[in-house]
C-alpha cells in the first residue's frame, strides 16, 4: 500500500529525488507563485532510499516543458519526473543534464559580456554532468554554483 504524507493528486507531476534543500529553487523554476490555481505540495527533508535525504515537489494539473526539465537537471541531476494520471504513475524518467545550455542560466562571471545588456543569450558547454559544471562559450569561465545563476 502507498503511504502518502499529502493528499494524492489525480493528474499532474511529482518531481522526486530532488537534492535536499533545492525544493524552493524548483518551485521558482517551474514558476509557482501566488496566482497558481492548482494544488502544489512541497516535501522537504524526506528520508530517501538512494541518498540519505531528498525533497519532493508535487504539482497538480501540470506537466513540465523541456526548458524547465533542463533547469531542474542542472540543479538536481538525480531528480525523477513522475507523470501522474488518474492517481497512478503513468510515466517515470530521470532528468537529463543537457550537453549545451542556452538562455536558461546567466554566467557567474560579473565581468562577462553576457552580463552587460548585449542582445545575446548566455550559452554554456556542459563540461561535467555530476555535479554540473558549465563553461561559458563567451568568457570561457566555469560556473558551478548553478542554482544561484538559473534565470
Amino acid at each position: 500500500m502507498k503511504e502518502f504524507k499529502v493528499t494524492p493528486i489525480r493528474n499532474g507531476t511529482v518531481i522526486d529525488h530532488i537534492e535536499m534543500g533545492m525544493a524552493l529553487k524548483v518551485l521558482r523554476i517551474i514558476g509557482v507563485r501566488g496566482d497558481v490555481s492548482s494544488t502544489v505540495s512541497v516535501l522537504m527533508h524526506v528520508p530517501s532510499k538512494k541518498n540519505s535525504w531528498k525533497d519532493i515537489v508535487k504539482i497538480e494539473d501540470r506537466e513540465l516543458d523541456p526548458k524547465e526539465l533542463d533547469k531542474i537537471a542542472l540543479i538536481s541531476p538525480d531528480a525523477t519526473i513522475n507523470i501522474i494520471r488518474d492517481y497512478n504513475v503513468a510515466e517515470k524518467f530521470v532528468v537529463e543534464v543537457p550537453e549545451r545550455v542556452k538562455g536558461i542560466m546567466s554566467c557567474s562571471n560579473p565581468g562577462c559580456i553576457t552580463n552587460k545588456n548585449e542582445p545575446v543569450e548566455p550559452e554554456f558547454v556542459v563540461e561535467t554532468k555530476k555535479p554540473p559544471a558549465l563553461r561559458c562559450v563567451y568568457c570561457d569561465r566555469m560556473t558551478t554554483d548553478i542554482a544561484e545563476n538559473i534565470v
Binding site: C107, N109, G111, C112, I113, T114, K116, E118, V120, C136, V137, Y138, C139, D140, R141
Partner: peptide, 26 residues
C-alpha cells in the same frame, strides 16, 4: 574591450573576421 568574452560576441555579430586584441581579464 574590458569585458571578458567580448571578442567571441563580436565574432557572432560580424561577418568579417574579428581579431581579439584583449578582452578584459580574458
Amino acid at each position: 574591450h574590458p569585458q571578458e568574452g567580448a571578442a567571441r560576441l563580436a565574432g557572432h555579430f560580424a561577418e568579417k573576421p574579428v581579431i581579439n586584441a584583449g578582452d578584459g581579464a580574458g
